[in-house]
């Protein structure tokens, strides 16, 4: 018989007890492939441009890029 490793850890037990999870209802059978694909497509993902959007450099880039592009187009034409 193993000794209870949490025997003298009342505060830790109290802390771990505070982790409640609500379980959704779901059937034993898996949904079909199409439904799984739709669920996967609907899963929110991180915006890959986030690191660019939230930096000072990105603001200056956003401000100067139209001017640079305008100059490039003017030179080309």
């Amino acid at each position: 018989m193993n000794q209870d490793p949490f025997k003298y850890e009342e505060q830790l037990k109290h802390f771990l007890d505070s982790y409640h999870v609500e379980m959704p209802e779901f059937p034993v059978e898996k949904p079909g492939r199409w439904q799984r694909l739709i669920q996967w497509l609907a899963t929110p993902v991180k915006n890959p441009l986030d690191p660019l959007v939230e930096t000072v450099r990105s603001y200056s880039l956003a401000g100067t890029l139209p001017i640079v592009l305008g100059l490039v187009i003017a030179v080309i034409t």
């Binding site: 802390f15 771990l16 505070s18 982790y19 899963t43 993902v45 991180k46």
Partner: peptide, 24 residues
């Protein structure tokens, strides 16, 4: 394909619950 990575789980209502989730 790192852009496929889903968002981190949403923080929950109570501070205790959030901390126990993060700690584990």
């Amino acid at each position: 394909m790192p852009f496929l990575k889903p968002e981190d789980p949403q923080p929950t209502n109570t501070e205790d619950k959030l901390t126990v989730q993060q700690a584990l």
